[in-house]
Design a protein around this nucleic acid. Structure first.
Lengths: 231, 231
DNA sequence: TACTTTATCTTGACACCGTCAACATAGCCT
DNA sequence: AGGCTATGTTGACGGTGTCAAGATAAAGTA
């Protein structure tokens, strides 16, 4: 019900009648003429939001601008998202889904040693944050989580992603890469905390110099694996 | 309303011309009669800001509300702070100053073993963040650091505080608490990252359950010290 | 003492923002 | 054909940071 429908409707409208509809549509960039109904506003908003998010950051992301990007009036988005948090949640959900696949892919590389996979995971985690700082901020920042602003849809995607960190931790403990004398949950919290902390210090502008990410990741990985040798 | 009020006040006050200091002091809340000039608006704003910060969070901290708290018009703050960032910077600076003293106090307890001090530092760091989440957010969050919004005054207080982390790390390395086979700067970044990450996951609402802070801190401290035994 | 400068505080205005209410249109189902 | 529902619209409200221009008081200077 998307593109085809829109095109058909446009022709019908243009031939038939008034162009009050037509001139409201100094629309998005592609299609100069459009019908009263957008066709797929929801995904158009999400696309515009993803673009604005990566280019200008979450702070300067307003529903009104997104509506304008989609060539639609300022309150139209409210027919697809309860409020701003719901829209942000939807974007973050996509991020979690993507990251979860990436994490699983790294973790399940049977041909590599657990140690190599562990090190790769550390680097990829921080690398993902550094490469997508605004998405990372949205996924793991206070904006959504602080006041229960996160949609239940988001939680459904995010919690398994959090949980996966524990699963991996247990695996690494079994393989002797992480100390076995620590509770798996606590250890997962600490290792995740380390990666999260490094990522945040980087993307929040506190580590002004971001040219030594690799060394920091190696140092972190070394540290954890060294600890296991004692236990 | 205020024009009349101001005039009346002026006449009343001018008679006793001596005490500009006196009537400006209790200005904000208590004294309904106000002189045109506040007297010490800058610190009144900072006090109001600190209060609002801890009670309602940095997100709902607006210059207009602060001005109202101080009993002053909405643009008055601009005569004391270049913009909102400057005011936030001033508050954060106080936070850094306080935390730096605390850190030094812990670090310099000669009567305790280095190991005990290290563990105490870890707990105090996370504890400070948990006890003052909004101040921590302001000090170490993206709000001020991301776009160079931090005042140079703030930087002057914050950078030594960051640097102290490296100093301590070197000390702990020398005492055999942290691995000696790692570059001190990298190691400081990783250890600080760990504390920062745990703190952020807690205060940003991602660790919904904050009842195991102590265990997490112990786990982190154990991990680092275990790593040193191998090196 | 009188005059001038400077610091401080004022109102007015502008451009944003999220969100609600009320209304308009179009597509779909009976 | 008629009505229901999804989706779009404008108007309005209260909130924000910030600038410009004018008012007032304090401080410095002759």
């Amino acid at each position: 019900m998307s593109a085809v429908n829109v095109t058909d409707t446009r022709e019908a409208v243009v031939t038939s009648a008034t162009d009050t509809a037509v001139n409201t549509i100094s629309n998005a960039v592609s299609n100069p003429a459009q019908s009263y109904h957008h066709g797929d506003l929801r995904t158009a908003l999400l696309n515009a939001a993803a673009k604005r998010l990566s280019e200008h950051g979450v702070d300067s992301l307003s529903l009104r601008k997104l509506a304008e990007d989609a060539g639609v009036s300022r309150t139209a988005p409210y027919h697809h998202f309860k409020d701003k948090s719901a829209l942000l949640s939807a974007i973050a959900a996509k991020g979690f889904s993507d990251w979860h696949s990436t994490a699983k892919r790294i973790f399940e590389q049977e041909e590599k040693t657990p140690s190599a996979r562990f090190r790769e995971f550390v680097c990829e985690y921080v690398g993902y944050a550094a490469a997508n700082p605004e998405m990372y901020e949205l996924m793991f920042g206070r904006t959504l989580w602080q006041n229960n602003a996160a949609t239940s849809d988001l939680k459904d995607v995010a919690f398994p992603c959090f949980q996966f960190q524990v699963t991996m931790t247990k695996f690494w403990q079994n393989k002797g890469l992480l100390p076995d004398n620590q509770d798996a949950l606590r250890l997962a919290q600490v290792t995740w905390g380390t990666l999260h902390g490094i990522a945040r210090l980087l993307i929040d502008g506190i580590y002004a110099d971001s040219s030594h990410i690799q060394e920091m990741c190696d140092c972190a990985a070394d540290l954890f694996m060294q600890a296991s040798n004692k236990a």
